[in-house]
């Protein structure tokens, strides 16, 4: 699979896919998209990079162990649910704030935080499976 063309294109393709996955994640609340699908896109981006350039560069690029990313995602997701307890409303109730940044109103919510958690869990879990399968040298 390590053809020159594929290897040359893969880093750009991967960056674009990761960027796109974040875009999909962020727009998910109002347009088609969301954390799950975004996570899948990012995971396939990692898989493509791994197939093209080997697993080591991918592991270096994402720095953390993918399972660690996944666990952190679960933690973030749970935290987003627990946040509502401090506001005195039942677990997982969505909380919204609208801060204005440079004159633009930005909608932030615990729901978005939760979706980011979903994204991280999916990237980490699927990514680590794909990377582990790509590592052939180990056996």
């Amino acid at each position: 699979m390590r053809t020159v063309i594929f290897r040359a294109i893969a880093p750009y393709l991967t960056s674009l896919m990761v960027l796109f996955s974040i875009f999909v994640l962020l727009r998910g609340h109002n347009e088609p998209g969301g954390g799950f699908i975004g996570g899948l896109i990012a995971a396939s981006a990692l898989a493509i990079y791994g197939i093209a350039c080997g697993v080591e560069p991918v592991r270096r690029a994402i720095y953390f162990h993918p399972m660690g990313i996944s666990a952190f995602g679960l933690f973030v997701g749970t935290l987003a649910g627990v946040l509502s307890v401090f506001a005195g409303v039942p677990f997982m109730t969505g909380l919204w704030v609208y801060p204005t940044l440079f004159g633009v109103e930005i909608a932030l919510s615990s729901v978005l935080v939760f979706d980011i958690g979903v994204y991280l869990v999916v990237v980490g879990a699927i990514g680590s499976i794909a990377l582990a399968l790509e590592e052939r040298d180990r056996d």
């Binding site: 109002n30 088609p32 969301g34 997701g77 729901v111 958690g117 979903v118």
Partner: peptide
């Protein structure tokens, strides 16, 4: 506060389900 019903169900209305799923 979301127009994508599918996503709103996943992360808000039935968010606890999703928490279990992830």
């Amino acid at each position: 506060h979301g127009t994508n019903v599918v996503n709103v169900i996943l992360v808000d209305f039935r968010g606890t389900d999703t928490l279990g799923e992830i």
